[in-house]
Write a protein that binds this DNA or RNA. Sequence first.
RNA 1: GGCUCCGUAGCCAAGUGGCUAAGGCAGCGGAUUGCAAAUCCGCCAUCGUGGGUUCAACUCCCACCGGAGCCUCCA
Length: 532
Amino acid sequence: MTTSIRIYNTLTKTKETLQTVEPGKVGMYLCGPTVYAEAHIGHMVGPVIFDTIKRYLQYSGYEVTWVVNITDVDDKLINKSREKGISMFQLATQMTADYLANLQSLGVDQIDHMPRATENMDEIIKFIVELIDRGFAYASQGDVYFDVLKDEEYGRLSNRTADAQQGEGGETASRKRSTGDFALWKSAKPDEPSWPSPWGNGRPGWHIECSAMSRRILGKTFDIHGGGLDLVFPHHENELAQSRCCHGQPMVRYWLHNGLMRADAEKGKVGGKSDRDDGAAIEGVVSEPVSVEEATAGKISRSKGGGGLAKLIERQTGERIRFFLLRSHYRSTTVFGDGPLEEAGASLETFYRLIQRFEKISGIDFYDKDQLPIGKHRSDFVAPKLRHAAIDELVKLREGFLSKMDDDFNTGGATGDLFEMVRALNRFIDSEGLEEPAKRTPDAMAMLSTGMAIFKEMSSILGIFVRPPKQSGGNEDATQLLDGLMQLVIQLRSDARAKRDFATSDSVRNGLTQIGITLQDGKNGTTWEVNK
RNA sequence: GGCUCCGUAGCCAAGUGGCUAAGGCAGCGGAUUGCAAAUCCGCCAUCGUGGGUUCAACUCCCACCGGAGCCUCCA
């Protein structure tokens, strides 16, 4: 298969053309969470971009296997579970459930395997034994360490030398041959969870599970391995060393790392440059007093109140967050907060309105795969027979979208094409007058559906607009009731308008605006929407 | 101290050694509307600063200023 997909490889620091280990197949592995606390937004960046990458690779004709591991044994889990007075396994189970729920909310549903460290002990121990046999690791007082100095290529990924500090100081330092060595196996204290091994009871070090589990599922060399930029060192450097030394062949073709999220500074939003003289109220600038801590934008971490993602999703909707993440490039650092999400939400409305408009005109359910079918593969696409400037434009925008995706999954650039598709489609509806039933000729309607299908085909690659946006409230009875009520109100107002009693009709509309409902008078009657 | 990355309009954000520097949000003007909303049309940037390389740089190199990250657990 020939594609021109290019991926930025952290190892070589260049974009490289994708050439898979097995033709037509892609194996990819994303480092998942250590499940000792609730997920925060930073944990979602990798899953969302990988989910999108998988969708795109599949669209490009590849068969993709995607693995995300769950680290369910480590020091933090042990400590945290003690604090909470529950077992490590209970804590892991709870936090894994939280993680999975968050993934689902963001539309991440392409993961094929989610192996857990505790369920792969045999494989992990086997891997360590192999490393010792090959002379790259040594046992020391119940621990096992990787001997960094034996690996000539150590440090290439993160661009540092083998003597880089590896944490594990203190008492364990004396068990190591050199400071750069890192633990493959840690002996357990009597009250710690442990597994039997040739070196006594213990638990695996942080890095080895990924080497072991990726090999089991994806093989000795697989295509794409990713995670947050903060994992490059030491985690990925060490994984890479373990696997390569164990197998004598590269672990991964392409190392892919996403940029990190930063917390929003939440400073006074309105008004211009108040950089200097902060504190002094500049005319019209309302700035909320914030503590020094809050005013400093910084890296999101669990220890600094970065959790509570579930609440955030409830407040902002998963699609907003997904769209927000996809709006910029996955490798860039992104400032995150309610403000930026609101803006993403505002621009999403443009899409929702078009979709509603289309559904109203055509009677087709946009989200139904039978009513508005789309092509599964890029190569399935055939230029529409119906010719129209709008269709031609859509076809061209589609190509633009795909070429941006080809270039290191440039989702930010691709969303621009999506917006332009919306404009082209609205323009088509306007120019053909499709709001009026009389003008809905079979040709025009076919063209509209064709255009919408192109739009849907592209947006579904990003994993957005694949299901109807969540209704606020979520209570179906209440929703139906509200709908009936609104129809009644609209009817009464229409009667007033028919009599040119605008005082009454405006008063109704203003009243609704006050409570957050916007009315829209169109050629075909009045519609309403709840302001988000 | 060592190693990375970033600095594009009020804000967010793509992108390129040479065609009009995408798109979004906000704003402004127009079409439409009883008035609005929505939609459409139009307007709104010379790319942190200073040098250098080049026929040509926002895009490459150097310096500086500013911001972020990693080097310790972290997606």
